[in-house]
Design a binder for these strands. Structure first.
Length: 754
DNA sequence: GTTCTAGAAC
DNA sequence: GTTCTAGAAC
């Protein structure tokens, strides 16, 4: 083995430095681990300990970073000896990695009890964590624990859950000579979903910790358990209520593990990419041969995978042991289909995001020919999860479906599948039937069957292609199609197809179920929907126009009517607009451009005749944004309107994207600027110009959505943690924001990640 | 829109 | 015990 002196001459070029980030609570033995390795290792190590780096006092993270950089310059390997319990804490250190620097994590995931007792006993320890406080601190830190993942940027992660694991890791690192490297990957993770998963899943409003896999689906609330109940009562209430032969909702036991796996691998990678999730068509209740079906799936996927732009196709099945899934996986791999474009996924297609972390904007439904809810399997599950809104929207599009065909149905924003799962369209597909107990059985005629199944997948994928194309052309394209906004929906509705529901008994049952499930806020609107969709639209619009503004909501209106009286508050007055700083700014820079005309209370009032006005407002906002950019080029601005503002009088927000403000205090604040509730001024101008009115996304659910970083889209459990994350997040802004001048940034930075 | 505060969550 | 949220009042 080489000595240090040898490699300074020759080995230097080859030697890869190593950064090992220790992860563990106080008392988990991080320092001991480092010391033991350093005592016996022939590799030059530097231990960077935040507890001791500050000249006897506790140091800072940046001191640690600086020391790490200089150690790496000296071609030494580095231990980062601090707790590093959450991803955020680790992130800056992980950035030290690169082509010449291997990034490892060693996780000392020992029982909390043990860490606490060690901490308590410890006297004069560098961290000065003594006595009774220790227990509380360790517990608190463990609450935040987020086990590292390779996706954070590690090439190797070693998990230690007991003393012998620690011993093994110790031996591995001690034996590491200056030129040696260790294999990449995760090692020693026996229980991948201990505390961390619980944390993540809980804050993403997911199911409970999957340590007890059987509990997962059972413990998840509402529709799923209701379906289960329904399935288990085959003596049910109507002809549609037959027991599901596919067992779609019956096989909970295994899913826990699979959902957790899906969460880990799927959460990050699939965000913001148009994604179609589809079940295997005809293979369950329609008893189509799995081998033939899998051939056709792979054949059709291969055909379409290049027609869907950056979109993706995901074959979903509820059970892990699914034969069809493994057949398709094998055949797709054999044909070398791009695994970024096509994947298989185990999970409930109605809960892909909330339980599986997989974002899909479109799902396919294995429908029946009458496009009715019920039956069993995927169809029952989707109609049930989507609520009555899907039935209504489906009836607007088609009354029935022939085998081999598909129909695209935009999902109204009132559907829980829209608000909870982010699904904008459902594509109903009807495949060939090989089951003699179902209508139109092909009696084992697989010539015909295969042809029809091919047609079915073609129709399905064509439908998805058309959605992707529409959205490419106009990012807001899909919204036009939403039931609530669509004017043509009225026309299609005219014939009164609702009367054609043959078993209204079941329908009423479904509606009352949803009513009871929905919170009070939605109830009123839900009632309207149940009564008459046409009226509900009008009703809502009228409601908006006559919105009652409380006394406290009039401030901007008064200013707009008589700006001279509020000279101290306003910073610019013109004939058409007034500019002022927001009294409670939600970012470093946050101003309002007020429209002056009376009668323009909010965005819903804006029509084509106001086009010039909103262009003037935009220009004024832009002027001020640019002025601020001259003072601070690091700022990034966004200009837009709240779909349903609290304050009367049309006002344009001009807000810097740091969101660094003590006034940003709650979920509503955050979501009003970072979800679709915030309507970009450029889009509003385009919509007014094209359609004569702006699209409003005033669904309450948007404001109560989980907290996601506006840059990297990561989710955070509460406002303080979100704020601490956004103060550091340097991820590029999502693609949609970078398009169409939605963001205003310093000109020199155009095209570069800010 | 904010403030206040009960009580849930940690 | 402290932190955080969410609902009511303004």
């Amino acid at each position: 083995m080489n000595t240090d002196s040898e490699e300074t001459s020759e080995g230097e070029g080859q030697r890869k430095a190593l950064v090992v980030i220790l992860v563990g609570a106080p008392g988990s033995g991080k320092s001991t681990f480092c010391e033991n390795v350093m005592r016996s290792s022939s590799r030059p190590w530097v231990r960077i300990c935040q507890d001791s780096i500050g000249n006897g006092k506790t140091g800072t993270k940046s001191q640690c970073l600086t020391s790490a950089v200089s150690a790496l310059k000296d071609r030494k390997s580095v231990f980062i000896d601090r707790c590093n319990l959450d991803r955020e804490q680790r992130a800056d250190f992980v950035k030290l990695g690169g082509p010449q620097v291997d990034m490892h994590a060693v996780v000392l995931d020992l029982p909390a009890k043990l860490c606490i007792s060690r901490s308590v006993k410890r006297t004069g320890h560098e961290g000065n964590l003594q006595g009774g406080k220790a227990a509380a601190v360790v517990n608190r830190m463990l609450q935040k624990k987020e086990l590292p993942k390779l996706s954070e940027g590690f090439s190797r992660i070693t998990f230690c859950q007991n003393d012998s694991d620690v011993e093994a890791a110790l031996n591995t690192y001690s034996a590491l000579g200056p030129l040696d490297t260790l294999p990449s990957g995760c090692f020693g993770q026996k229980n991948p979903d201990s505390k961390v998963q619980l944390g993540i899943m809980k804050f993403l409003k997911k199911v409970e910790a999957p340590t007890n896999a059987g509990a997962v689906v059972n413990s998840s609330q509402d529709s799923t358990s209701t379906q289960i109940t329904r399935e288990k009562e085959p003596c049910g209430k109507g002809p549609e209520n037959v027991s599901s032969s596919s067992g779609y909702v019956g096989k909970e036991t295994k899913e826990g593990e699979d959902l957790a796996v899906g969460l880990v691998s799927g959460t990050v990678s699939l965000n913001d990419v148009p994604t179609l999730a589809f079940p295997s068509i005809s293979t369950s209740d329609f008893q189509f041969n799995h081998d033939r079906a899998s051939d056709i799936i792979v054949e059709k996927v291969e055909e379409f995978v290049n027609k869907i732009g950056n979109g993706r196709l995901v074959l979903v099945d509820l059970s892990n042991g699914s034969k069809i899934l493994s057949l398709v996986r094998a055949k797709a791999a054999h044909k070398k289909i791009d695994s970024n474009k096509f994947l298989t996924f185990v999970g409930d297609i109605t809960r892909l995001y909330s339980e599986g972390g997989l974002r899909c904007n479109v799902i396919a439904n294995a429908a029946n020919w009458r496009l009715k809810p019920g039956g069993g399997g995927v169809n029952a599950a989707i109609f049930s999860a989507a609520g009555p809104a899907l039935e209504v929207a489906t009836k607007e599009r088609a009354g029935s479906l022939l085998p081999g065909n598909a129909v695209v149905v935009p999902l109204p924003a009132t559907s829980p599948l829209f608000s909870r799962e982010g699904i904008t369209h459902v594509i109903h597909v009807l495949g060939p039937n090989m089951n003699p107990q179902r209508p139109n059985c092909l009696n084992s005629d697989y010539n015909k069957g295969c042809k029809v199944l091919r047609e079915a997948y073609s129709s399905l994928f064509e439908g998805f292609v058309s959605i992707v194309k529409t959205q490419e052309n106009s990012p807001k394209g899909s919204i036009k199609n939403l039931g609530l906004e669509s004017s043509e929906s009225q026309d299609h509705f005219g014939g009164g197809p609702r009367n054609h529901f043959p078993n209204s008994g079941q329908k009423i049952k479904r509606e009352s179920f949803y009513e009871s499930e929905r919170n009070k806020k939605c109830k009123g609107f839900q009632d309207e929907l149940g009564a008459d969709v046409t009226n509900s639209r009008v009703g809502k619009e009228t409601l908006n126009n006559n919105k009652a503004w409380g006394a406290w909501a009039q401030a901007l209106y008064h200013i707009a009517m008589d700006p001279e009286r509020y000279k101290n508050d306003v910073i610019e007055i013109s004939d058409d607009v007034v500019v002022l700083n927001d009294l409670y700014p939600k970012a470093q820079r946050h101003l309002l451009v007020l429209a002056r005309p009376e009668g323009l209370d909010h965005l819903a009032d804006v029509r084509k005749e106001h086009l010039q006005l909103i262009k003037t407002m935009h220009a004024m906002g832009l002027k001020w944004a640019e002025k601020f950019l001259c003072e601070d080029a690091s700022l990034v601005f966004r200009l837009g309107y709240h779909s349903d503002p609290s304050m009367r009088q049309l006002h344009l927000h001009v807000i810097s994207q740091d969101f660094n403000s003590k006034h940003l205090k709650n979920k509503k604040h955050w979501n009003s600027f970072t979800t679709a509730f915030f309507r970009d001024s450029v889009d509003v101008i385009e919509e007014i110009s094209n359609n004569g009115k702006a699209t409003l996304k005033d669904d309450d659910s948007l404001l109560s959505m989980e907290l996601r970083c506006h840059r990297c889209r990561s989710a955070h459990p509460n406002i303080p943690r979100l704020k601490s994350h956004i103060s550091n997040c340097q991820a590029p802004f999502p693609a949609t924001l970078l398009q169409n001048d939605r963001l205003v940034l310093a000109s020199s930075k155009a095209g570069i990640n800010p």
